[in-house]
Design a protein around this nucleic acid. Structure first.
Lengths: 214, 214
DNA sequence: AAAATGATTGAACACCCATTCAATGGAGAC
DNA sequence: GTCTCCATTGAATGGGTGTTCAATCATTTT
């Protein structure tokens, strides 16, 4: 009889596994119902666990939400850091790696985007966002600016201000994310990535050849 | 004695005035506490009215939120329509008028931006958003695309695809809005507007002279 | 095998919120 | 001045939510 039983997961699990499980359930719940619709009942049901377990592994619902945001931020950072920090890579390729990371399926999918904008959208959460993500945002923007400066030096581009390009990229990233989330029928990762690369080929035509101007 | 009394507003007011009053209180409340923190108690307190009045002038809290969103959408539309639809205006100036409207103080301020992103951020509200704003978004994008096409014809620009520029603008608008909301110390209306115009001067150098490339 | 430890459960609790509605108030009709 | 009509009030209602905690269960230790 025991052979036919479906694989039954053990009742207890290491705390780190439970935390991960709850964070994933939270992402799913937020993407389905929004932050305000994300109750502990729904999260624990999604995770297949009991109601009281959140306040055991996290101190509060607030702490669970903070941990969820931090999880996304770390995941995102590790993605663009990995490819853009290889020493034997040209600045332009590193920059393109950052763009690719921004629209990588692991980060840029409907579930995750919904969570990001859920935090952007609630005034009280924006402070939580800034607390966990401002440093990372600044780091990425700083790296991007430096890469643009390197490219400017390499290509002898005049009248290109690295910091301005970097801010434009940051804006484009966020705005294209929003459009992917809001109008998935008209926008997608590929299209968004191509748009950003097109912009870079406008700024740095020698370094980003291809579909210019458009 | 009556002369010293502060101007006391009459107890009753025409329904349209009450609706407007409640919508404005809702905007304030959302910008302070987010949508989930916006209770009818807070809205009515902000408006200086009693608790039960929302369900009298609107059918429900949901209806109040929908009306608030529609109010913002209409306000935004009337702003860019006004200046960009004058017959004796060059396409490039019309396009710039749309950009200016996007970053006009009446639309682009912390309160209103907070409300926009509150609706973007909640999955359930996104459907409400799409219902009231998708047509307007498409209209603006269509107008922008047509203007870009006119400019391309005028300037004989090769390898500039109007629809692509239009989508880039849409993305930039949203992304820069978000950065203004999130990092008000580093971003502001003026900076954002200049960035967008810089982008246009990259695409259409003859029509948008000035600080190029940056 | 028994005890101890720590994870898990879910009912109970206290709080908050949208909605309802009977009572009140005031402006205009007559 | 009286009456009628409707806007307005705010207490009451019912449903939902985060948190707590005593009981239960499984694992590890002795």
């Amino acid at each position: 009889m025991s052979a036919v039983m479906p694989a039954k997961s053990p009742r207890t699990a290491p705390p780190e596994a439970r935390r991960q499980q709850l964070i994933e359930a939270t992402i799913t719940s937020i993407s389905k119902y929004g932050i305000s619709g994300t109750t502990l009942a729904r999260v624990t049901q999604e995770a297949g666990l009991s109601l009281g377990i959140v306040n055991f592994h996290f101190d509060s619902k607030e702490a669970l939400l903070r941990a969820t945001l931090k999880h996304l931020a770390d995941e995102h950072r590790s993605l663009w850091i990995k490819t853009s920090s290889r020493p034997d890579t040209a600045p332009a390729d590193k920059l393109k790696a950052i763009v690719d990371a921004q629209f990588h399926p692991r980060v840029c999918n409907r579930q995750k985007l919904a969570v990001w904008f859920a935090f952007f959208g609630e005034t009280r959460r924006r402070q939580a966002y800034r607390h966990t993500s401002e440093v990372l945002d600044m780091e990425r923007q700083s790296v991007t600016t430096d890469l643009c400066a390197d490219i400017v030096t390499e290509g002898g581009y005049t009248d290109v201000v690295p910091e301005k390009v970097s801010q434009m990229l940051e804006g484009l990233f966020d705005g294209l994310w929003l459009n992917i989330l809001m109008y998935p029928g008209r926008f997608n990762r590929q299209l968004a990535r191509d748009h950003v690369v097109s912009y870079l080929s406008l700024c740095f035509p020698q370094h980003f050849p291809g579909n210019r101007g458009a």
